[in-house]
Design a protein around this nucleic acid. Structure first.
Lengths: 198, 198
DNA sequence: CACTCGAAGTTGTCAATGACAACAATGATG
DNA sequence: CATCATTGTTGTCATTGACAACTTCGAGTG
């Protein structure tokens, strides 16, 4: 028919990229394996060779999202390392990275967490969440060593920080970056000083 | 055919209840208007009289969820009123209510927030989120009057608290109630005292 | 170098679904 | 009791996800 080679060559990545775009532009309901196949210029059953299920595609998409989010968090930490920053700056950096991701890809973030509490979700997703918590934990532990974070179970502290970040990101989806970034500074400051009376 | 009356009488509520059960048991992907119709014993097009769209059903479901969550939060506040509690107890009460809802209906909570950041979401959903924030805000403002919460923009403080609650709830979905309740105490305590060195 | 064999794509098909249109029963209101 | 909006029904259509059976390609292997 066409001069297109029989083998696409990189169908899996193409499908994932296409899926992420559709997800961002038209939401999860609009995702259709057949449409992705059409966009990639392959037959309607071709995606089945790379993803057993529609669910498998969604899982792969979610996992890919976690990997990128994780990379963004670690990149943020590295930048603060270079700047020799204090713990507050580290936390703000992590927060910016997390919220930036959430603003850029709200639907993807939803997907990532929605699939997480399906009981038959792949363990890789749970591991990805664990890796993120570990990144926050590292920052907290370092802060404690520097005397900039209060004593106490660092895991509990990290969990609280991660909760706040995720909740803030979840609430902020849809707002403008400027507004959010301003609020973010307040949040990190409040988190450090506490809500109780001085 | 059957002796069932032509008019169901309460189809809308029946559909919503059925949908919520399916959502909880088998996830959002398994929701089908036709199946809901079958369960209710009506024809496959009957739901269309009550919900223009599948999306309209999901919106109604989300809104109903917000209403129940809001009711739980206010109920928690009322109980603390009777006990004449301090602000820490108030916050813990709110937190328990929020997280309790999240543990009982994780898929519903997902749906509630997922629909929220679709640009064509009904404003009622945004209003529902606003009402929740207002409830937290009330508690914070009262705490400030009692000198149990630090000075400062109460809205920013309330937003931080709400973020932490939502994030914690989101992370906790899937865990056991006991574990979560223990962690919850830590979180509220940390929130009040702050993460910085004492 | 010819062969084989597995990976990747294709066509064909099926039942299920969401949406809609045209029609029917019901019961509230004048 | 006549009307008429509401609620339900039947029929139909295009789309979809899943699967089965077949084909093309290319990487090794003897």
């Amino acid at each position: 028919m066409s001069d297109r080679p029989y083998h696409h060559g990189d169908l899996r990545s193409t499908l994932l990229a296409s899926a992420e775009r559709t997800l961002a532009e038209r939401g999860p309901q609009a995702l259709s394996l057949r449409e992705l196949a059409r966009e990639a210029g392959v037959s309607h059953a071709a995606p089945g060779r790379h993803f057993k299920d529609k669910r498998a595609l969604l899982d792969a998409l979610a996992l890919h999202g976690f990997q990128r989010l994780q990379a963004a968090l670690e990149e943020a930490r590295r930048q603060q390392d270079q700047a020799g920053a204090d713990t507050g700056a580290y936390l703000l950096g992590l927060a910016r990275a997390y919220v930036g991701f959430a603003l850029a890809s709200p639907a993807l973030l939803d997907l990532m967490y929605a699939r997480k509490h399906d009981d038959d979700a792949p363990e890789q997703l749970a591991e990805a969440v664990g890796a993120m918590l570990a990144t926050v934990l590292d920052t907290i532990a370092e802060g404690q060593r520097a005397g900039e974070i209060a004593e106490g179970d660092p895991t509990a502290i990290a969990f609280t920080v991660a909760s706040t970040l995720h909740g803030f990101a979840s609430f902020s989806a849809g707002a403008s970056i400027e507004d959010v970034d301003e609020g973010l500074g307040d949040v990190v400051r409040l988190l450090l000083t506490g809500l109780g009376p001085r």
